[in-house]
Write a protein that binds this DNA or RNA. Structure first.
Lengths: 227, 227, 227, 227
DNA sequence: AATGAATGAGGGTTCATTCAT
DNA sequence: GATGAATGAACCCTCATTCAT
């Protein structure tokens, strides 16, 4: 699987094993993400995760004490662990908040929505009721930071007089709903009957943002919002 | 189901058993709906459906030959079987199409969204990939008639000059997405952490319709919708 | 099912019911025979027997307290109950014993081998080990009288000097084996792959009898046995 | 299966587990053969097979994906897989074909008829109609090669002028029928009431062969077979 | 007498997790 | 560390038999 680098041998044997050992968790998380997205949490068999990662069933349980812990690790790796970076990124944003919103939506689509990571969201919504512990974990590690991020953007718009003083807890859904809709389409019925869903993601999301902004932007700026 | 013979009510010694027998399918469908909505298709055990309907495991299979058929029957009873009525209702609608749209959204919420029936939609989106046969059934029996209904409303608006000549296949999602979002919230994370989702459905849906209409109404009428 | 006789009505309603009531056991035995032969004892569902007889499941158990008793009744009706007649028929046979043997084989084929009744034999051989009580019953009610009949024929041949003084308990199998072979072919593999078994019953049986006789007939008669 | 490396026997710490693992399929096949022969295919519970092999229910399905596949494996192990050897053995036979026939019958009895393997034949005849896929498999893997083998012997006899030019497809049954009869006796009624069947197999089979040969041997040789 | 709704033990198969090697 | 054989509880579905009507 791993080709030897031509030079620098010597304790090469040991090195390769080391590298593989260190790579193990990552390979397992990758395989798990793929399968969780494909089949959901309950329907994913641990053995298949191990097989796809190229290790044995036993090894999986060496790194993750249970399927639930494996799932949590997948969530941390692909979603929860990235909010720190995103918060920093948005904390230093300069320019109109409407641009910030548009940028946020685009960034979400590129880094999450269009990737396998969005499958986790679909999975979580699908199985939340059957795995309340996972749901609580996801709520705390993903949804809370996520809504906080959105809330901060909206608050910034209001504070700077760019947005009307809307009920922010409420307006959040105006942003999140289209994201979720896209996500569900992409990972559920869109897979079964793609021809029935001729949805262009970018166009859909852009439209939604525009609609949203036209309802959000302060009147004084004359609906032009930017002009 | 059985019309009473006008005279001669004498033969009611079979009454209790008869009544139970005729009620069975309905009781089972009710129990199944409840559990399917609660746990999903795969995680619902047929024995539990039977127990909740107050019968034994075997009795369930007396009325429905398999879990899949039970599910289809639930879908027919609660969604698929009602489109005929709805189509008639909307076929005879008079008045502006914008009202029709608002009315449709309200009716959907009252009869589906706010009821357990919406749980079927959530279930189907959750499990479509794992049960392709059910997905195909649902696609044909529910999604197709549903989108047809929406499409007809939009087409009416365009035909009567009330709406701009938008891409209807595309605009459909502007109506369906908020429905789906509400549905997913109600049956998934909303169940686990309701305090985090202080979402008033009517208000949310009304807002979405208004946003949508303001993008749809023909210019010539001068945004009169809002006046 | 039963057409009314044109005349003689009056208590016709009662009469028909009576007739049907009396016919019930026979219809059930017929249906049971058919299904037992088709599928065996264990794989035959009582409900199907009832259905094929045109009555309800409960009625079957009104006439026969269990599936095993039903089977015994089928055996009595189709095999066990007929030995008395056969014994009388063969008791009064006149002529050479070799003819008697040929005649017996032909009679067996016509009345048992070629009919559904032979299916009982196949069934019994198939399931004897799993239903020892049935096996004991069959042993006593069918096999014992059957072998007795054959033994009597052979004994007659020996007593009259027509046959050599062979070990009769042993020679019996020379007669029974071809019967059983035909039976098994007819009801088992012959059903699955008839093209592979181009067996003409009469010819096969005739040949077997001739072979048998040529080994049985007393030498003094010069192998011609009849000439 | 695994050949021992000649030197360096050091790595035998896996020995016990390894040995058990390699022995498992065989142990399971043995247990399955025993139970299939005892109870038939349908009445044999997979859990009991596992128990008799000393493992748990789940382990059985580790080695054989279903009961049907388990049965096929049993057939291959005990019957189908041995025809190659037998064909070679008979291909190099020298001497009169009548001897070959006698030898074949004896060999069949020793290696199949008298062993548990013959129980498979009884089982298959018993359950062919209820398991058509198994019947087809058996037909192809056992019956076809078996009849081919017999056909070749008869053809040899005819080709060498030792046998009359009989209808071979027909004569085959003269050989197979006694085999089947013995088999059915041994595994069915013979088990229930052995005292009623004082059948000495060798003697029965020898007799049958002799009868058959006297009808087969070419006249020109003057029935020399017997001299 | 006749019905047929109801029962519930039982059988094939799956899969997360353990543990000897 | 790594393996993969082994476990056994769980799940869907069947069917002989019972019994209220």
């Amino acid at each position: 699987m791993v080709t030897n680098p031509p030079a620098e041998r010597g304790n090469d044997h040991h090195a390769r094993r080391e590298r593989r050992k260190e790579a193990r968790p990552g390979e397992l998380l990758d395989a798990a993400l793929e399968l969780f997205v494909e089949k959901g949490f309950a329907a994913t068999r641990s053995e298949e995760v191990a097989a796809r990662a190229g290790v044995s069933k036993g090894t999986l349980f060496l790194y993750f004490p249970s399927k639930e812990e494996l799932f949590k690790a997948v969530v941390r790796e692909n979603l929860a662990g990235r909010f720190a970076e995103w918060q920093k990124e948005f904390g230093s944003f300069e320019g109109p908040t409407s641009d910030m919103l548009r940028y946020g939506m685009r960034v979400w689509w590129e880094r999450v929505g269009a990737t396998r990571a969005s499958g986790i969201t679909k999975l979580m919504i699908s199985e939340a009721r059957n795995f309340p512990e996972l749901a609580a974990f996801y709520q705390q590690e993903v949804i809370r930071p996520g809504t906080d991020l959105v809330r901060r953007i909206l608050q910034r718009g209001v504070d700077r007089g760019e947005f009307r003083a809307v009920d922010i807890d409420y307006a959040i859904f105006g942003i999140v709903a289209p994201m979720l809709f896209m996500t569900m389409m992409k990972h559920s019925l869109g897979v079964c009957a793609p021809q029935d869903y001729p949805l262009d993601a970018q166009r859909y999301l852009d439209t939604q943002v525009d609609l949203l902004l036209n309802g959000l932007v302060a009147r004084g700026e004359g609906r032009g919002e930017r002009a």
